[in-house]
Simulated scan of single mutants.
Amino acid sequence: MTDGEWSTRVDIQGKDELADLGTSLNTLAEQLQQHEHLRVTMTEDIAHELRTPLATLKSHMRALEDGIWEPTPERIHSCYEEIERLTQLVAELEDLTHVESPVFNCCEKKNHWRPLLREVKNWLLLPIVKNVHLRCSVSPHIQVFVDHDRMIQGSCESA
């Protein structure tokens, strides 16, 4: 496994501590194999997402450079939009890298559940779109350890 051989599994025999260790190693190998597959897939997806605006921008710039296109405000704006698209993709990639970083920390604090739930509920689109009324019956004494800002951010992003 240290050499990246994720398909290797431990042959488990018996029901003792060594068998438990073997089961844990097999589970770890399976999870590492899944993470490696996700990493490869994500890298391929990112490359594809970046390739499209780059190809468009390159063809636009080549047409301008070769005199096929006149540099009209509309065409320059089209190039600008592709640059903005690339900028947004890179920003999203940076956000993902930040969240996945081992130094990323949540600021978990004790929060009362009722006001937090009410705040999250306000961001949901379901009540607005489907004209559904949500009621929360939560004891005011229940407390949870969460990062308030991230909890609300997630709600805002899904809204």
Score class of each variant (00 low, 15 high):
Thr2Ser: 10
Thr2Pro: 00
Gly4Gln: 12
Glu5Ala: 14
Trp6Asn: 09
Ser7Glu: 14
Ser7Gly: 06
Ser7Trp: 07
Arg9Lys: 13
Gln13His: 12
Gln13Asp: 05
Gly14Arg: 04
Glu17Thr: 10
Ala19Gln: 07
Asp20Thr: 12
Thr23Pro: 00
Thr23Gly: 04
Ser24Gly: 10
Asn26Ile: 06
Asn26Thr: 05
Thr27Pro: 00
Thr27Asp: 11
Leu28Pro: 01
Leu28Asn: 03
Leu28Thr: 05
Glu30Arg: 09
Gln31Glu: 11
Gln33Leu: 08
Gln34Phe: 08
Glu36Asn: 13
His37Gly: 01
Thr41Ala: 13
Met42Glu: 11
Met42Asp: 08
Thr43Asn: 11
Thr43Arg: 14
Glu44Gly: 02
Ile46Ala: 13
Ile46Glu: 07
Ala47Pro: 00
Glu49Gln: 14
Glu49Phe: 01
Leu50Asp: 04
Leu50Trp: 04
Arg51Tyr: 02
Thr52Gln: 13
Pro53Tyr: 05
Ala55Glu: 13
Thr56Val: 09
Thr56Cys: 03
Lys58Pro: 00
Ser59Lys: 15
His60Gly: 04
Met61Ala: 11
Met61Glu: 03
Met61Tyr: 08
Ala63Leu: 10
Leu64Met: 12
Glu65Ala: 15
Gly67His: 09
Pro73Ile: 06
Pro73Cys: 06
Glu74Asp: 15
His77Pro: 00
Ser78Met: 04
Ser78Phe: 05
Ser78Lys: 13
Cys79Val: 03
Tyr80Gly: 02
Tyr80Gln: 11
Glu84Cys: 09
Glu84Lys: 15
Glu84Leu: 15
Leu86Pro: 09
Leu86Ile: 15
Thr87Pro: 01
Gln88Gly: 02
Leu89Asp: 02
Val90Cys: 03
Ala91Ser: 08
Ala91Leu: 10
Glu94Val: 04
Glu94Gly: 06
Glu94Cys: 05
Leu96Trp: 02
Leu96Ser: 12
His98Ala: 10
Glu100Ser: 06
Glu100Met: 10
Glu100His: 04
Ser101Gly: 10
Phe104Ile: 00
Cys106Arg: 11
Cys107Ser: 10
Glu108Val: 05
Glu108Met: 04
Lys109Met: 09
Lys110Phe: 00
Asn111Lys: 06
His112Arg: 13
His112Glu: 12
Trp113Leu: 15
Trp113Asn: 00
Pro115Leu: 08
Arg118Cys: 03
Glu119Tyr: 02
Val120Asn: 02
Trp123Lys: 05
Leu124Pro: 02
Pro127His: 08
Val129Ser: 02
Val129Gln: 06
Val129Thr: 07
Lys130Glu: 13
Asn131Lys: 15
Val132Gly: 02
His133Gly: 03
Leu134Arg: 00
Leu134Gly: 00
Leu134Ala: 05
Cys136His: 11
Ser137Cys: 03
Ser137Trp: 08
Val138Thr: 12
Val138Trp: 01
Ser139Cys: 11
Gln143Phe: 04
Gln143Ile: 07
Gln143Asn: 07
Phe145Met: 14
Phe145Gly: 06
Phe145Glu: 13
Asp147Pro: 07
Asp147Val: 03
Arg150Asp: 05
Gln153His: 13
Gly154His: 07
Gly154Ser: 09
Ser155Cys: 15
Ser158Trp: 06
Ser158Gly: 08
Ser158Pro: 00
Ala159Ser: 15
